[in-house]
Computed example of a mutant assay.
Amino acid sequence: MNRLPAMKANDWLNKVPEITLSFWIIKILSTTVGETAADFLALNAGWGQGVTRTVMAALLATALFTHLRTRRYTPWIYWLTVVLVSVVGTQITDLLTDGLGVSLYVSTSAFAVVLAAIFLVWYRVERTLSIHDIVTRRRELFYWAAILCTFALGTAAGDLATEALGLGFIWGAVAFGTLIGVTYAIWRKGGNAVLTFWIAYILTRPFGAALGDLLTQSEIYGGFGMGAMWTSSIFLSVIALLVAVAQVGMNGSGSAQATE
């Protein structure tokens, strides 16, 4: 069985992309795809929830293993992993809510506690939660554990707001979009960069979930009726385009450095 290669600290480059506008666009699109793709595969494609969960979990494990074997940030591997984390995070919440009948109030609270525990342990061990310092295997594992939990939490929180609290898809998207805007304003005013990043990262998940439901659901239920297949296809195409640009740019930068 292959094992992850041992790496010295000075062999690592940061495994997370720079936080740019493109990062946030891809992140939001990924969260929406996580909502729509899971529904499409389980319902429209006829896979069923059990098969969809098994296949997506296996693909995520493969992508994450591939990412962990790399020594530097590789756009297509990183964002493929994020998309799959989004799908699996959605399925975890759906399993609890629809399969096991767990209240959205309970699941949202539970995921929030688990995420807080991950951050607490991560900080106590590493003394930093900054994504600019993901330069060791242990920090990377903390990072991906937190990412998976943010997607599960965001899905539960989004469903709680739009369904249990009755905000609906439009007002749910507006509410979470406003909170993201407030977080951005706080950061611009000098707020803690690490804290505001993670708050925004969490909020993009319920925003993306509400947006996904708004686009895919029938007009009878307050949506635009685009359907999960079309929404997923369009958003995945945009993600692929942006990631391809980032990958080409990184390859060009690497070639330039090699010739210096």
Rank of each mutant, 00 (worst) to 15 (best):
T178Q: 10
V182Y: 14
H67W: 06
V243E: 07
K15Q: 08
T81V: 08
S109P: 01
I131H: 14
M229E: 06
A156I: 01
A38G: 11
V194S: 14
A193C: 00
A193R: 15
A258C: 00
T81Y: 09
A258P: 00
A38L: 08
A37N: 03
A173V: 04
Y184C: 08
G223S: 06
H67P: 06
A58V: 11
I118M: 05
A210I: 05
G158F: 02
P206Y: 03
Y105L: 04
Y143W: 05
R127A: 15
T66P: 01
R188V: 02
L214T: 04
L60W: 07
S130E: 11
G177N: 06
S232T: 15
L96W: 08
S30A: 13
G249N: 12
Q49V: 14
L129C: 06
F176G: 01
L60P: 10
E18G: 01
K189N: 11
Y105S: 02
F169T: 01
Q91G: 03
L13T: 13
L95M: 12
Y78T: 07
N251V: 01
Y73Q: 05
I131Q: 14
L21E: 09
L95A: 13
K189D: 13
T97I: 12
L148Q: 03
T231F: 11
T20C: 00
T231S: 15
L59R: 08
R53D: 03
M229C: 00
D213M: 10
V174Q: 02
T36R: 12
E18S: 10
D133K: 14
Y73P: 02
V182W: 14
I28A: 07
T128L: 13
G222C: 05
V102K: 05
E260S: 07
V82L: 08
A45C: 10
V194G: 11
I92P: 03
Y201L: 00
S86D: 12
T183M: 13
L95P: 07
R69S: 12
Q91N: 07
L115V: 00
V33K: 03
W47K: 10
T90M: 11
P17G: 00
V248S: 10
T204L: 04
V248H: 09
L211E: 02
M226Y: 12
A157H: 00
V85R: 01
M1C: 02
